[in-house]
Design a protein around this nucleic acid. Sequence first.
RNA 1: GUGGGCGUAGUGAAGAGGUUAUCACGCUAGGUUGUGGCCCUGGAGACGAGGGUUCAAUUCCCUCCGCUCACCCCA
Length: 427
Amino acid sequence: MSFKRPRGTADILSEDQPYWSHVYATGRRVAGQFGYSRIDTPTFEDTSLFQRGVGDATDIVQKEMYSFQDQGDNPLTLRPEGTASVCRAYIENGFQSGPQPVRMFYMAPMFRYERPQAGRWRQHHQFGVEAIGDQSPEIDAEVIELGWKYIADLGIHGVKLRVNNLGDPEGRADYISDLDQYFTERIDQLAKIDRDRLQRAPLRVLDSKVEETQQLADNAPKSIDYIGGETKDHWEALLMLLDNLKTIYPEFSYDVDHRLVRGLDYYNRTVFEYEPSNAGSQGTLLAGGRYDPLIGILGGQETPGIGFGSGIERMILEMKKQEVMVAQPAGPEIVVVALGDAGVAAAGLATALRAVDISTVLAPKRSMKAQMRYANNQNAANVVILGDREVENGVASVKSLTEGGDQSEVALDAAAIAAHVRYTKNQ
RNA sequence: GUGGGCGUAGUGAAGAGGUUAUCACGCUAGGUUGUGGCCCUGGAGACGAGGGUUCAAUUCCCUCCGCUCACCCCA
């Protein structure tokens, strides 16, 4: 055979475009409602940005990056996620000198070399937001609320929020060592996969999919028991703000889930995920958290930040599952059907109609029957029939394609035809 | 990286070790000399690749490739 698209990529065909338009429009609108403005960063960045930002030890950096060298031997990587790039842009463009916090959103393709499966692609798209330069719990709640409104406005129901607090880097060592000890004492009850996890990333044992491990994890030490002082105040204030959201959004609800951890190194304190209650294996629709250390790690001055990323493909999957209706694009207002020697006149008429903002498509030059069928398949509102007869008389036959639509002769003039179809449309 | 399932026209399916591989939808031409949808008749279009077994393989076997689901991980 011939060429095929690379594994894990998709052609987004016209039948799916209404979903994409809906998601993009909703993202833009909701972000705007919260005062977030759009930022577009390059599709590729220096490889070291992600090594430092996402974390050298993470799976994303270890085995999932699309890295390459360009002709100048520069090590570059197709972006696997959005936060590192936005923070780089924040530092590089001197945003810290402007009013804080800086609220930004992005919609862009992300690239990860993984085995594709339901809800997972090598090229996928994310809508994400970042609020940088504010450490108050109010901004945590704002980002969480924005995520909720986005999902709700997409028309998706039955989604639950899970939140946790990972504490701060200083205090986390104590927690991880206690957690390590807890699981090590019970290592004979752990599946092999979880023993490996315990070696690599003790926190990840908490969100294991192995049922026996889950039971152990329920009774494991909790990160929220290891936070204190300002971190604890922040956490308790956030929970009150979330309770407040419940009174505004009737469907909103959340669970504190001490087993919620994240796979990227930069998170601290607040982490959260939105997931449908009946989710499949790749069910997380939107996930994020606070990343106060990140800007510093990337060489900027210490600046707090919080944000989320959400997979557009997963949103669309869920919308289809829940049979969310999206607006379908209308067909052209006019399909011009040309007969005999009227081809040139028909093309000229189509041009004139578009010039007066009537969407117009020229039918392929075939039999009249075929042209009519074409117009019907295009979902056209009207056909304009132009044959030798009409051209001779200086008229065009305009026919509505609605059921029992009538046909009348109109002067062969774009303005007159435009007026006619606009008039009948409003009847 | 690991494991399961699956590869037949554009799509969805059926099929048999042996002349021309079947059906539906879609596409296309006509029935209707210039009128779409419904109906009728025709046409184009497919066995993923390589190897093996066999007189004969699209069918059985193997390998590869691809798709898909799950794990790992993540949006």
